[in-house]
Computed example of a mutant assay.
Amino acid sequence: MSQLVFIAAGGALGAVMRFGVSNAVHAVTGRDFPYGTLTVNILGSLLMGALYVLLVERLIETVEWRAFLLVGVLGAFTTFSTFSMETVALIEGGEPLRALLNMLLSVTVCVLATWLGVLAVRQL
């Protein structure tokens, strides 16, 4: 039961962080392309890689901390479902090339960011 409380608390924090980061990015870039979601997914992927190494491979922290940070905070912070809906909206809005660009950037850059996070922390 305590693990669920940690996940819920982390999820609340991650959701608020996602809202803030996404809105800050859109304030700079505008809303004609889902740059906010892309930024959140890249940053979340980088943090997932780094925190996974720290919490699982290095520090072997408690299950509660892993649940709070990896499942709760980063699970709510990253926005794959939002990415999917925004991509469908681009397709339905007659912009299939922008939808394809969003898919390619989101998947490739986020996987790369996760890998970079893993590599960076393993070098410490």
Results as ranks from 00 to 15, higher is better:
M85C: 02
F6P: 09
L100W: 07
H26N: 15
C110I: 00
T37V: 12
L105D: 08
G14C: 05
V16R: 04
G14T: 03
L105T: 08
G49K: 09
A24Y: 07
V109E: 03
G72E: 01
F83G: 01
N41F: 07
M17K: 08
G10H: 04
L101H: 04
I60P: 05
L55M: 13
T108S: 15
V111I: 15
L119P: 00
M85S: 10
V109H: 06
P96V: 01
A67G: 13
G75W: 01
L97T: 12
V16T: 14
G49T: 07
S81T: 05
T82K: 03
E86V: 02
A67E: 03
Q3L: 14
L101I: 10
T108G: 08
L116E: 02
M103S: 12
Y35E: 09
L105G: 05
Y35T: 14
S22C: 13
A27P: 05
G49C: 09
T82G: 13
G11D: 01
N102Q: 12
T79G: 09
I91W: 08
L74F: 05
L100K: 04
L59G: 09
I42E: 04
E95N: 12
L69V: 09
L105V: 14
I42T: 08
R31K: 15
G30T: 07
G30F: 05
G36L: 06
E57R: 07
M1I: 08
V25R: 10
E64D: 13
E86W: 01
R18N: 12
N102L: 06
V63L: 14
E61A: 15
E95H: 13
M48L: 15
R66I: 02
M85K: 07
R18H: 10
S45N: 06
M1P: 07
A9N: 02
G14I: 00
F33V: 10
P96A: 00
S106F: 01
F83K: 01
S2M: 11
L43F: 14
L55R: 03
L55C: 06
I42N: 04
M85G: 01
A8E: 07
G117Q: 05
L119S: 10
T78I: 02
T37D: 04
L43A: 15
E86S: 04
V73E: 02
V16D: 07
F77C: 10
